[in-house]
Simulated scan of single mutants.
Amino acid sequence: MSSHMPPIPARQPPRLEQGIVGWLRANLFSGPLNSLVSVAIIVMLGYLLWPLIQWALINADWVGDSREACSSEGACWVFISARLETIVYGFYPQAARWRVDLVFALLAALIAWLAIPRLPIKRWVCLFALFGFPIIAYVLLSGGHFGLMPVSTRDWGGLMLTLTIAVVGIVGSLPIGVLLALGRRSTMPLVRGVSVVFIEFWRGVPLITVLFMASVMLPLFVPSEVDFDKLLRALVGIMLFWSAYMAEVVRGGLQAIPSGQEEAGKALGLSYWQRMGLIVLPQALKTVIPGIVNTFIALFKDTSLVLVIGLLDLLSIIQAGLTDPDWLGFAIEGYVFAALVYWVFCFSMSRYSQYVERRLDTGHRN
């Protein structure tokens, strides 16, 4: 009669090989040379960053409503706190700012719903985000309907205006860029020629020139009785400009897909748009996620250029506050705060794109 020994239970790895200590041993202190270099870099960073930490956090002034509250040698964040409402809302009427808050909250809820994998009905939420949310946001922000006080776009500004331009530019440039990329690869000479001319024209001029053209020349192509809003002109110019760059990113993804994929679709009897929408484009867009997000980040940062046509975005509002005689001399705090806001949004987009890449990775990489 044979007896079977029970398997020995797996043991936990040594404490020094897991957790923070294990990560440090594996990445920073894996050998004498690696340890020496890591210690030298840590000491150098501490030497360089400690004065910045003292200025920005330890010796900084946080509470107050005037420059008299800034009595230390550190940063005067009182400038930011005292002007925070203007930085966020621009000149939007205070009684109607709840509408901006509601739009921000709805946008954050939609992004969170689409970003969290386990939440259901994502297709319907995506359709609402593309078609329903823009209408609701326009009605709330502009007013003039359902008893809401009308607010001119001249009063929009600050972070609110920056996010408006960025979201509209991102949502508008991606589908236009996809169509241009497909047009540039089309076998129809006229479609291909129009796409090539469009892409090369918009990529050949700087964005500042595009904004000037949109502000000055675009109204010449509409009837004189039509009041073409300045913000709408900027949105059209930004969408067209960045759609040209997006088209080249998407075209790179299309060229990376083997021709056998489309040939297989033809063998199944699928039409051109079925082949593109069901087979080629999903693979191409997954391949160029880093390039797409890189374009989104560049678009978000370039929203600050709308200052040249008189729109006061986040950076412009901060610069306007620095000209106030009561706050002269606090330019560093204003620019540091603006840089931090831009970094938070851009870094968030970058990290989420890396998460999407890992989630959609099907093992095609070597």
Rank of each mutant, 00 (worst) to 15 (best):
S142D: 09
G144M: 06
G144R: 10
H145K: 08
F146Y: 14
F146L: 13
P150A: 05
V151A: 03
S152M: 12
S152D: 14
T153W: 14
G157C: 02
G157N: 03
G157S: 01
L161P: 13
L163Q: 03
T164F: 15
A166R: 02
V167L: 05
V168E: 01
G169R: 06
V171S: 13
L174W: 00
L174T: 07
P175F: 05
I176A: 07
G177K: 00
L179I: 09
A181P: 14
A181Q: 12
L182M: 06
G183M: 10
R184L: 09
R184F: 06
R184A: 04
R185N: 15
R185K: 14
R185Y: 06
T187W: 08
M188C: 10
P189T: 04
P189E: 02
V191Q: 14
G193Y: 02
G193D: 06
G193A: 03
S195M: 05
S195V: 01
V196L: 11
V196K: 04
V196T: 06
V197R: 06
F198Q: 01
F198V: 03
F198D: 00
I199N: 06
I199M: 14
E200Q: 14
F201W: 10
W202A: 04
W202Y: 15
R203A: 15
R203Y: 13
G204E: 02
